[in-house]
């Protein structure tokens, strides 16, 4: 039987700075031992370890349709800061995959609306690339993304070059506050979303970002006529085990690590508002 809480060791193949401030880095990793490798679906996560410091839950930002596993990590505490000190060639621990992931199979033939803020694009990126790699299975794809400043936008290559090149795929980017280099839209994601006013017809809206953004995006979506079943979001709660055992990440009787992190708005409404 596989040991539950023991990570496999992986080599960092490359580290990429995503933001100007250097607070988000994308790590591409490769397991040292093939038996530790695992398959995953978009929206699933893994426990990343800096051995000697600790573990934290991070979404797998790469799509399973691509061959390398990637994580984008924002520096926010002990483990994430220690991760940021590591470079290509260094060793991390990885165990997973955890969580339910996005229901990409149920999205077939629907119009997909992805709405993300900041590092919140990381989990959506996995789903976006998955759908783009299976382009004919899905309807039009619209990506609305925002960050505090142009320097805070992640995955710039993809949002500006790669994704807009796919058929029926639209990427709209806003920043809270622009600078001299910026001539795109300015303003917060929720109001940007209301301006764009995407249609709810046969659509699924998937959103991830800072809690305050999510809150107003959810409001905006329902104003735009999206039903609770059509709205999908991911939750973040403190985690320790990732496998539903440590009693940490529950909201009501649901555990974010195994029942989530992806929930539809109607599922969320059935839970106590304690997150």
């Amino acid at each position: 039987m596989k040991a539950l809480l023991i990570p496999g060791l992986a080599r960092i193949e490359s580290v990429r700075d995503e933001t100007a401030a250097g607070d988000v880095k994308t790590f591409t990793v490769q397991f040292l031992d093939e038996k530790d490798r695992f398959d995953y679906m978009p929206g699933q996560c893994a426990m990343l370890s800096v051995i000697g410091v600790g573990e934290c839950m991070i979404s797998i930002t790469s799509s399973p349709t691509r061959d390398r596993m990637q994580f984008s990590v924002k520096k926010s505490g002990r483990v994430t800061s220690a991760l940021h000190e590591l470079e290509a060639g260094h060793t991390v621990g990885v165990r997973g995959p955890y969580g339910n992931g996005f229901a990409v199979n149920e999205w077939r033939n629907k119009r997909l609306l992805f709405i993300a803020g900041g590092i919140g694009l990381a989990p959506l990126r996995s789903a976006i690339n998955y759908c783009l790699d299976n382009r004919e299975d899905y309807g039009p794809i619209q990506i609305i993304y925002g960050a505090r400043s142009p320097g805070d936008l992640c995955f710039k290559d993809e949002i500006f070059k790669n994704w807009p090149g796919f058929p029926e795929t639209q990427v709209q980017v806003t920043v809270d506050k622009g600078d001299e280099s910026w001539n795109g839209p300015q303003g917060f994601v929720p109001s940007f979303l209301k301006e764009i006013a995407p249609s709810p017809d046969n659509a699924v809206a998937v959103t991830c970002g800072p809690p305050i953004m999510i809150k107003f995006v959810l409001q905006a979506l329902s104003e735009l006529g999206f039903g609770d079943e059509q709205v999908v979001t991911t939750l973040e709660l403190k985690m320790q085990c990732g496998v539903g055992k440590c009693g940490r990440c529950n909201i009501g009787h649901k555990y974010v690590c195994v029942d989530g992190p992806v929930f539809t708005l109607s599922q969320l409404r059935a839970l106590p508002a304690e997150y």
């Binding site: 809480l5 000697g52 410091v53 600790g54 573990e55 320790q240 440590c246 009693g247």
Partner: peptide, 16 residues
């Protein structure tokens, strides 16, 4: 049954 997981480093070795 709640638990937490943590590392106890001692230089170049340690335990989780």
């Amino acid at each position: 049954y709640c638990f937490s997981v943590f590392d106890a480093p001692r230089g170049t070795h340690g335990k989780r």
